[in-house]
Design a protein around this nucleic acid. Structure first.
Length: 289
DNA sequence: AGGCATGTTACAGG
DNA sequence: ACCTGTAACATGCC
């Protein structure tokens, strides 16, 4: 599911429901995720309270008492379901219309909370992971240590990007996808950002003009904020914890739109699809330089 | 049957 | 040690 907007949507939804609840039990149906779920570590969460949920780039961090925290990454198809007996919204969602066995098949880890509420980690492709730590310093964590600035924070700025690309010779798409440069973007949003900025994905960063660097930074923030507002993008897999899907995909200008007419009214070119670094890239040959 | 998919990282080579 | 590009991971859908 998961670029920054989708993770943020899940975070906002979950924190309304599970803060201050105690974990009663953890059931592992299939712990062979990206990293094998450590049964002993995850069992330490039993009996303690979820204090806070944070998002860092595409990661969710669940904070508990005693400095325990749980780091979650959704990979490509990971998601949470929150259910209790009265969860009308989930029962009217797309997932509930599927055969029960079908969506339950990929329930990998189930956290049973107070009053029989459940938080279910569901992941078809198993590229996601759950790890438990006990620390008060996120810089101890390999996955968080090398992350670049949050794209919605003030450290993601024209001056920062200009400095970052100095002396580098990669294309702008790869740079924006690189979590060490800026953390939280993925293939969908990078395609959209570059279209809005009028820059071809293959452009070498050494050849970017200052005004283009400025546009890229600004459009990053615009695209992400709009996507969050729309509940994220649901291509096929994403839904929030209540099964609700986002609608931002309706507003995609280029992603998945190969062969469709460029949305710029003055342009008659069709959107091109090409592969860059093993990932599909979409752009307008005329509007992006 | 084969190609494709919202992500990360181990590895090889410069 | 840093920079870059490629392949692999697991599963389902067209």
């Amino acid at each position: 599911m998961p670029e920054l907007p989708e993770v943020e949507v899940v975070k906002r939804s979950l924190e309304k429901k599970i803060i201050n609840l105690i974990i009663k039990k953890v059931k592992i149906n299939d712990g062979n995720l990206r990293y094998k779920v450590n049964v002993k570590e995850i069992s330490k969460l039993i009996g303690i309270k979820i204090k806070k949920i944070k998002r860092k780039s595409k990661f969710l961090i669940f904070e508990f008492d005693k400095n325990f925290f749980m780091l979650v990454h959704f990979g490509m198809t990971g998601k949470f379901f929150y259910v209790d007996e009265n969860n009308i919204r989930f029962k009217t969602s797309f997932y509930y219309s599927l055969k029960k066995e079908k969506y339950e098949k990929h329930n990998r880890v189930i956290f049973i909370l107070q009053k029989n509420q459940k938080l279910i980690f569901h992941d078809i492709r198993k590229f996601g992971f759950i790890k438990i730590y006990q620390s008060n310093d996120y810089n101890d964590i390999l996955h968080l240590r090398n992350l670049g600035p949050e794209p919605l924070g003030k450290n993601w700025s024209y001056q920062y990007l200009k400095n970052y690309i100095f002396g580098r010779n990669r294309n702008i798409k790869d740079i924006l996808m690189d979590q060490k440069c800026v953390s939280g973007l993925g293939n969908i949003y990078v395609n959209e950002i570059l279209y809005l900025s009028g820059v071809k994905p293959k452009r070498k960063v050494s050849r970017l003009k200052n005004f283009e660097i400025k546009k890229i930074v600004k459009n990053t923030k615009i695209v992400l904020l709009n996507a969050i507002k729309q509940g994220g993008s649901s291509i096929k897999d994403f839904s929030s914890d209540d099964g609700k899907q986002g609608v931002f995909q309706q507003y995609f200008k280029v992603y998945g739109r190969v062969g469709e007419k460029c949305s710029n009214v003055d342009c008659n070119t069709n959107i091109t699809r090409t592969i860059i670094s093993n990932r599909a890239s979409f752009f307008c040959k005329s509007c992006q330089k």
